[in-house]
Design a protein around this nucleic acid. Structure first.
Lengths: 106, 106
DNA sequence: TGAACATATGAAGATATGTTCATATGTTAA
DNA sequence: TTAACATATGAACATATCTTCATATGTTCA
Protein backbone atom coordinates (compact mmCIF):
# COMPACT_ATOMS: atom_id res chain seq x y z
CA UNK A 1 0.00 0.00 0.00
CA UNK A 2 1.19 3.44 -0.70
CA UNK A 3 0.05 6.45 1.03
CA UNK A 4 0.69 5.08 4.44
CA UNK A 5 0.67 8.43 6.11
CA UNK A 6 -2.96 9.02 5.43
CA UNK A 7 -5.47 8.21 8.06
CA UNK A 8 -8.74 7.29 6.56
CA UNK A 9 -11.03 7.38 9.51
CA UNK A 10 -8.99 6.82 12.57
CA UNK A 11 -11.28 6.69 15.56
CA UNK A 12 -9.49 7.91 18.61
CA UNK A 13 -9.88 5.56 21.52
CA UNK A 14 -12.17 7.31 24.00
CA UNK A 15 -11.12 7.80 27.57
CA UNK A 16 -11.36 4.78 29.75
CA UNK A 17 -14.34 6.09 31.68
CA UNK A 18 -16.23 6.73 28.46
CA UNK A 19 -15.44 3.18 27.46
CA UNK A 20 -16.91 1.94 30.71
CA UNK A 21 -20.05 3.92 30.04
CA UNK A 22 -20.18 2.58 26.54
CA UNK A 23 -19.77 -0.97 27.77
CA UNK A 24 -22.51 -0.39 30.30
CA UNK A 25 -24.80 0.84 27.56
CA UNK A 26 -24.21 -2.23 25.44
CA UNK A 27 -24.73 -4.44 28.47
CA UNK A 28 -28.25 -3.12 28.60
CA UNK A 29 -28.85 -4.38 25.09
CA UNK A 30 -27.22 -7.66 25.97
CA UNK A 31 -30.21 -9.28 27.60
CA UNK A 32 -33.09 -10.84 25.73
CA UNK A 33 -35.68 -9.79 28.28
CA UNK A 34 -34.70 -6.17 27.91
CA UNK A 35 -34.64 -6.48 24.13
CA UNK A 36 -38.14 -7.91 24.21
CA UNK A 37 -39.30 -5.07 26.42
CA UNK A 38 -37.78 -2.57 24.04
CA UNK A 39 -39.52 -4.13 21.07
CA UNK A 40 -42.77 -4.24 22.97
CA UNK A 41 -42.75 -0.53 23.72
CA UNK A 42 -41.07 0.57 20.51
CA UNK A 43 -44.27 1.68 18.84
CA UNK A 44 -46.72 2.41 21.61
CA UNK A 45 -46.21 3.20 25.23
CA UNK A 46 -47.39 0.50 27.56
CA UNK A 47 -47.98 0.02 31.27
CA UNK A 48 -45.79 -2.23 33.35
CA UNK A 49 -48.47 -4.84 33.91
CA UNK A 50 -49.35 -4.78 30.26
CA UNK A 51 -45.76 -5.43 29.26
CA UNK A 52 -45.61 -8.25 31.76
CA UNK A 53 -48.74 -9.79 30.28
CA UNK A 54 -47.59 -9.48 26.71
CA UNK A 55 -44.28 -11.08 27.53
CA UNK A 56 -45.79 -13.50 30.00
CA UNK A 57 -43.33 -12.62 32.71
CA UNK A 58 -43.50 -11.51 36.33
CA UNK A 59 -44.35 -7.90 37.03
CA UNK A 60 -41.32 -7.74 39.27
CA UNK A 61 -38.98 -8.91 36.57
CA UNK A 62 -40.27 -6.32 34.16
CA UNK A 63 -40.06 -3.61 36.76
CA UNK A 64 -36.50 -4.45 37.59
CA UNK A 65 -35.51 -4.40 33.96
CA UNK A 66 -37.38 -1.18 33.28
CA UNK A 67 -35.32 0.38 35.99
CA UNK A 68 -32.18 -0.59 34.11
CA UNK A 69 -33.59 0.92 30.95
CA UNK A 70 -34.58 4.04 32.83
CA UNK A 71 -31.16 4.45 34.40
CA UNK A 72 -29.64 4.27 30.96
CA UNK A 73 -32.06 6.79 29.56
CA UNK A 74 -33.45 4.38 27.02
CA UNK A 75 -37.10 4.79 27.94
CA UNK A 76 -39.53 7.57 28.59
CA UNK A 77 -41.85 7.38 31.53
CA UNK A 78 -45.27 8.86 31.94
CA UNK A 79 -47.57 8.41 34.88
CA UNK A 80 -51.30 8.37 34.37
CA UNK A 81 -53.26 7.57 37.44
CA UNK A 82 -52.16 4.34 38.94
CA UNK A 83 -50.30 3.15 35.92
CA UNK A 84 -46.95 4.14 34.59
CA UNK A 85 -46.46 4.07 30.87
CA UNK A 86 -43.14 3.32 29.30
CA UNK A 87 -42.02 3.98 25.75
CA UNK A 88 -38.73 3.91 23.91
CA UNK A 89 -36.77 7.08 24.34
CA UNK A 90 -35.76 7.77 20.76
CA UNK A 91 -35.08 6.31 17.36
CA UNK A 92 -31.51 6.13 18.34
CA UNK A 93 -32.29 3.10 20.40
CA UNK A 94 -34.08 1.41 17.55
CA UNK A 95 -31.19 2.10 15.26
CA UNK A 96 -28.75 0.45 17.59
CA UNK A 97 -30.94 -2.63 17.71
CA UNK A 98 -31.44 -2.67 13.95
CA UNK A 99 -27.73 -2.40 13.40
CA UNK A 100 -27.11 -5.37 15.65
CA UNK A 101 -29.85 -7.28 13.93
CA UNK A 102 -28.19 -6.65 10.59
CA UNK A 103 -25.08 -8.31 11.85
CA UNK A 104 -26.91 -11.26 13.35
CA UNK A 105 -29.05 -11.86 10.28
CA UNK A 106 -26.32 -11.17 7.77
CA UNK B 1 -45.48 9.70 0.97
CA UNK B 2 -48.92 8.51 0.63
CA UNK B 3 -50.97 6.74 2.84
CA UNK B 4 -51.76 3.20 2.33
CA UNK B 5 -52.34 1.47 5.53
CA UNK B 6 -48.63 1.52 5.97
CA UNK B 7 -47.22 1.58 9.45
CA UNK B 8 -44.38 3.96 9.65
CA UNK B 9 -41.65 1.79 11.01
CA UNK B 10 -43.15 -0.98 12.95
CA UNK B 11 -40.43 -3.43 13.73
CA UNK B 12 -41.79 -6.91 14.10
CA UNK B 13 -40.41 -8.59 17.15
CA UNK B 14 -37.90 -11.18 15.92
CA UNK B 15 -38.19 -14.77 16.97
CA UNK B 16 -36.99 -15.53 20.41
CA UNK B 17 -33.90 -17.36 19.21
CA UNK B 18 -32.92 -14.40 17.08
CA UNK B 19 -33.35 -12.21 20.13
CA UNK B 20 -31.01 -14.45 22.05
CA UNK B 21 -28.45 -14.16 19.29
CA UNK B 22 -28.91 -10.43 19.27
CA UNK B 23 -28.47 -10.23 23.02
CA UNK B 24 -25.35 -12.35 22.73
CA UNK B 25 -23.97 -9.98 20.14
CA UNK B 26 -24.53 -6.94 22.33
CA UNK B 27 -23.01 -8.76 25.28
CA UNK B 28 -19.80 -8.85 23.31
CA UNK B 29 -19.82 -5.07 23.10
CA UNK B 30 -20.70 -4.88 26.76
CA UNK B 31 -17.20 -5.23 28.11
CA UNK B 32 -14.63 -2.48 28.22
CA UNK B 33 -11.71 -4.79 27.58
CA UNK B 34 -13.27 -6.01 24.38
CA UNK B 35 -14.14 -2.48 23.36
CA UNK B 36 -10.55 -1.46 23.90
CA UNK B 37 -9.35 -4.37 21.83
CA UNK B 38 -11.75 -3.44 19.07
CA UNK B 39 -10.51 0.14 19.05
CA UNK B 40 -6.94 -1.04 19.06
CA UNK B 41 -7.33 -3.17 15.98
CA UNK B 42 -9.86 -0.98 14.24
CA UNK B 43 -7.35 0.59 11.91
CA UNK B 44 -4.48 -1.80 11.66
CA UNK B 45 -4.22 -5.46 12.36
CA UNK B 46 -2.15 -6.31 15.38
CA UNK B 47 -0.66 -9.39 16.98
CA UNK B 48 -1.97 -10.72 20.26
CA UNK B 49 1.12 -9.80 22.23
CA UNK B 50 1.13 -6.38 20.67
CA UNK B 51 -2.45 -5.78 21.73
CA UNK B 52 -1.60 -6.96 25.21
CA UNK B 53 1.30 -4.53 25.37
CA UNK B 54 -0.69 -1.60 24.08
CA UNK B 55 -3.45 -2.23 26.57
CA UNK B 56 -1.07 -3.29 29.29
CA UNK B 57 -2.94 -6.48 30.02
CA UNK B 58 -2.09 -10.16 30.24
CA UNK B 59 -1.63 -12.08 27.03
CA UNK B 60 -4.06 -14.66 28.34
CA UNK B 61 -6.77 -12.12 28.98
CA UNK B 62 -6.46 -10.75 25.49
CA UNK B 63 -6.46 -14.19 23.99
CA UNK B 64 -9.60 -15.20 25.85
CA UNK B 65 -11.38 -12.08 24.73
CA UNK B 66 -10.20 -12.42 21.17
CA UNK B 67 -11.79 -15.81 21.16
CA UNK B 68 -15.11 -14.24 22.08
CA UNK B 69 -14.70 -11.73 19.27
CA UNK B 70 -13.77 -14.53 16.89
CA UNK B 71 -16.76 -16.64 17.84
CA UNK B 72 -19.00 -13.70 17.12
CA UNK B 73 -17.34 -13.03 13.79
CA UNK B 74 -16.25 -9.58 14.78
CA UNK B 75 -12.59 -9.99 13.90
CA UNK B 76 -10.50 -11.26 11.08
CA UNK B 77 -7.55 -13.50 11.77
CA UNK B 78 -4.38 -13.91 9.82
CA UNK B 79 -1.42 -16.00 10.75
CA UNK B 80 2.06 -14.93 9.78
CA UNK B 81 4.78 -17.09 11.15
CA UNK B 82 4.54 -17.34 14.87
CA UNK B 83 2.19 -14.45 15.25
CA UNK B 84 -1.47 -14.17 14.64
CA UNK B 85 -2.80 -10.86 13.51
CA UNK B 86 -6.27 -9.67 14.36
CA UNK B 87 -8.26 -6.91 12.77
CA UNK B 88 -11.83 -5.73 12.93
CA UNK B 89 -14.08 -7.66 10.62
CA UNK B 90 -15.98 -4.85 8.99
CA UNK B 91 -17.17 -1.29 9.27
CA UNK B 92 -20.38 -2.64 10.59
CA UNK B 93 -18.71 -3.21 13.89
CA UNK B 94 -17.37 0.30 14.00
CA UNK B 95 -20.78 1.67 13.23
CA UNK B 96 -22.35 -0.18 16.12
CA UNK B 97 -19.74 1.25 18.45
CA UNK B 98 -20.11 4.74 17.05
CA UNK B 99 -23.85 4.58 17.45
CA UNK B 100 -23.49 3.59 21.09
CA UNK B 101 -20.95 6.32 21.59
CA UNK B 102 -23.39 8.87 20.24
CA UNK B 103 -25.85 7.87 22.88
CA UNK B 104 -23.31 7.96 25.67
CA UNK B 105 -21.84 11.30 24.69
CA UNK B 106 -25.07 13.01 23.78
C1' DT C 1 15.41 -32.57 16.85
C1' DG C 2 15.10 -29.11 20.56
C1' DA C 3 15.03 -24.33 22.18
C1' DA C 4 12.62 -20.12 22.02
C1' DC C 5 8.76 -17.72 21.11
C1' DA C 6 3.56 -16.75 20.19
C1' DT C 7 -0.93 -18.03 21.04
C1' DA C 8 -4.74 -20.80 23.04
C1' DT C 9 -7.11 -23.01 26.67
C1' DG C 10 -8.84 -25.37 31.09
C1' DA C 11 -9.65 -24.64 35.90
C1' DA C 12 -10.45 -21.78 39.74
C1' DG C 13 -11.85 -17.77 42.22
C1' DA C 14 -14.03 -13.28 42.50
C1' DT C 15 -17.59 -10.49 40.88
C1' DA C 16 -21.70 -9.30 38.23
C1' DT C 17 -26.28 -10.27 36.63
C1' DG C 18 -31.21 -11.98 36.23
C1' DT C 19 -35.17 -13.85 38.39
C1' DT C 20 -38.19 -14.73 42.17
C1' DC C 21 -40.42 -13.86 46.54
C1' DA C 22 -42.05 -10.86 49.85
C1' DT C 23 -43.09 -6.47 50.86
C1' DA C 24 -42.92 -1.39 50.51
C1' DT C 25 -44.45 2.76 48.17
C1' DG C 26 -47.64 5.38 45.56
C1' DT C 27 -52.35 6.35 43.55
C1' DT C 28 -57.36 6.36 43.23
C1' DA C 29 -61.93 6.17 44.73
C1' DA C 30 -65.30 5.14 48.16
C1' DT D 1 -59.28 7.16 56.20
C1' DT D 2 -59.24 2.46 54.11
C1' DA D 3 -59.45 -0.91 50.36
C1' DA D 4 -57.84 -2.15 46.01
C1' DC D 5 -54.74 -1.76 42.60
C1' DA D 6 -50.11 -0.60 40.10
C1' DT D 7 -45.41 -0.24 40.50
C1' DA D 8 -40.86 -0.44 42.81
C1' DT D 9 -37.42 -2.51 45.56
C1' DG D 10 -34.41 -5.38 48.82
C1' DA D 11 -32.72 -9.95 49.75
C1' DA D 12 -31.52 -14.37 48.27
C1' DC D 13 -30.26 -17.71 45.05
C1' DA D 14 -28.58 -19.57 40.71
C1' DT D 15 -26.00 -18.66 36.79
C1' DA D 16 -22.82 -16.18 33.85
C1' DT D 17 -18.68 -13.64 33.16
C1' DC D 18 -13.88 -11.95 33.62
C1' DT D 19 -9.28 -12.46 35.00
C1' DT D 20 -5.34 -15.08 36.42
C1' DC D 21 -2.36 -19.02 36.64
C1' DA D 22 -0.44 -22.93 34.74
C1' DT D 23 0.18 -25.37 30.86
C1' DA D 24 -0.80 -27.06 26.17
C1' DT D 25 -0.40 -26.28 21.25
C1' DG D 26 1.71 -24.44 17.25
C1' DT D 27 5.61 -22.21 14.65
C1' DT D 28 10.36 -21.03 13.42
C1' DC D 29 15.08 -21.64 13.16
C1' DA D 30 19.54 -23.33 14.59
Amino acid sequence: MENEKEKVTTPEMPDIDVLFELADLFKVFGDSTRLRIMYTISENEMSVLNIAEVLNMEQSTISHQLRVLRQNKLVRVRREGKQIYYSLDDDHVKRIIEMGLDHVLE
